[in-house]
Amino acid sequence: MFFFDLFLFALINADAQTPLFSIQLARVLSAWTPNISAALVLLALLFGSPAVRRTMLMLLLSMATAWAITRLIRWGFPAPRPFQLEMGTLWVQHGGRASFPSQHASGAFALAMALALGVTRHRKALVVLGFAAAIGICWSRVHLGVHFPSDVIAGALVGSIGAVIVWNATFWLRRRRYLRAVPHIKKLRLRLRTQ
């Protein structure tokens, strides 16, 4: 837990005076946004153009990378959830697994960042929607009492960094293969010309 967690958690976590609409919205964002996102990614993989399918595969690889990084951090630094410390109000049933960083936040931001890195400039609305959904998920996890603010902030960073790592590694590998192939192609052309 960080120095700002107590103040921000008390500010964001829903209590008995919070309107029911706000709690229901947080439940929907927390539970349904990942499922809807998964369905849309699956549809894009099945019916999208080759470029869209490549972007979706990179998106899934980014999310898998963020998941692995999150699991490693949780294993190395297990942190309790607010309700385990008897803080705030828990509005959904949840297990007592480690909370830092947030798995929901890391996956959501990996998806949003992968979209930002892979979507063409004509589909900026999709990128804005991805980041809006990711921010909504982060808010909902704190609002429902499942995470501290530092958990979702760390998850957002892990997800974003995971996507950047995947995209940069892929670019580097493509470029390296291309650079290795160029001298061989030039030699082959020279041999064909001389024969």
Score class of each variant (00 low, 15 high):
residue 2 F to T: 10
residue 5 D to Y: 06
residue 5 D to M: 04
residue 7 F to E: 10
residue 8 L to D: 02
residue 9 F to D: 04
residue 12 I to A: 00
residue 12 I to V: 08
residue 15 D to R: 04
residue 16 A to E: 09
residue 17 Q to T: 15
residue 17 Q to D: 15
residue 18 T to V: 06
residue 19 P to R: 06
residue 20 L to T: 08
residue 22 S to A: 03
residue 26 A to N: 03
residue 27 R to Y: 00
residue 31 A to T: 08
residue 32 W to T: 01
residue 32 W to L: 11
residue 32 W to A: 08
residue 39 A to H: 12
residue 41 V to M: 14
residue 43 L to M: 14
residue 44 A to G: 13
residue 46 L to W: 13
residue 46 L to S: 07
residue 46 L to Q: 06
residue 46 L to E: 03
residue 49 S to P: 12
residue 50 P to R: 10
residue 51 A to L: 02
residue 52 V to G: 03
residue 53 R to M: 04
residue 54 R to I: 01
residue 55 T to A: 14
residue 55 T to E: 13
residue 56 M to T: 03
residue 56 M to Q: 14
residue 57 L to W: 11
residue 58 M to S: 12
residue 58 M to P: 12
residue 58 M to A: 06
residue 59 L to V: 03
residue 59 L to A: 01
residue 59 L to C: 13
residue 60 L to C: 00
residue 63 M to L: 15
residue 63 M to G: 15
residue 64 A to E: 06
residue 65 T to S: 04
residue 66 A to K: 01
residue 66 A to R: 07
residue 69 I to G: 05
residue 70 T to M: 13
residue 70 T to R: 04
residue 71 R to W: 07
residue 72 L to V: 05
residue 73 I to N: 06
residue 73 I to H: 10
residue 74 R to W: 07
residue 75 W to K: 03
residue 77 F to Q: 09
residue 78 P to M: 02
residue 78 P to Q: 05
residue 79 A to M: 14
residue 81 R to H: 07
residue 86 E to I: 03
residue 87 M to T: 00
residue 88 G to P: 06
residue 89 T to L: 09
residue 90 L to V: 00
residue 90 L to A: 04
residue 92 V to F: 02
residue 94 H to D: 12
residue 96 G to I: 07
residue 96 G to T: 14
residue 97 R to T: 13
residue 98 A to Q: 06
residue 101 P to V: 00
residue 105 A to E: 07
residue 106 S to F: 07
residue 106 S to A: 05
residue 107 G to S: 06
residue 109 F to D: 01
residue 111 L to A: 10
residue 112 A to S: 11
residue 112 A to W: 15
residue 112 A to V: 12
residue 113 M to G: 02
residue 114 A to Y: 11
residue 115 L to P: 00
residue 121 R to T: 12
residue 123 R to I: 00
residue 123 R to L: 06
residue 124 K to A: 04
residue 124 K to N: 05
residue 127 V to Q: 13
residue 128 V to S: 15
residue 130 G to P: 12
residue 131 F to V: 10
residue 132 A to S: 15
residue 132 A to V: 15
residue 133 A to W: 14
residue 134 A to S: 05
residue 134 A to E: 14
residue 135 I to R: 11
residue 136 G to E: 03
residue 138 C to S: 01
residue 138 C to H: 02
residue 139 W to C: 01
residue 139 W to Q: 05
residue 139 W to I: 02
residue 140 S to W: 13
residue 141 R to F: 00
residue 143 H to C: 05
residue 145 G to A: 08
residue 147 H to A: 01
residue 150 S to A: 04
residue 150 S to R: 08
residue 151 D to R: 06
residue 152 V to W: 04
residue 153 I to R: 02
residue 153 I to F: 09
residue 154 A to G: 15
residue 156 A to C: 11
residue 156 A to P: 02
residue 157 L to W: 08
residue 158 V to L: 04
residue 159 G to H: 02
residue 159 G to K: 04
residue 162 G to T: 10
residue 164 V to G: 00
residue 166 V to Q: 10
residue 167 W to I: 08
residue 168 N to A: 08
residue 170 T to W: 15
residue 172 W to Q: 09
residue 172 W to P: 05
residue 172 W to M: 11
residue 175 R to V: 07
residue 175 R to N: 11
residue 175 R to H: 14
residue 177 R to P: 00
residue 177 R to T: 04
residue 178 Y to F: 10
residue 179 L to Y: 14
residue 183 P to H: 10
residue 184 H to Y: 09
residue 187 K to N: 09
residue 189 R to T: 11
residue 190 L to A: 11
residue 191 R to T: 02
residue 194 T to F: 11
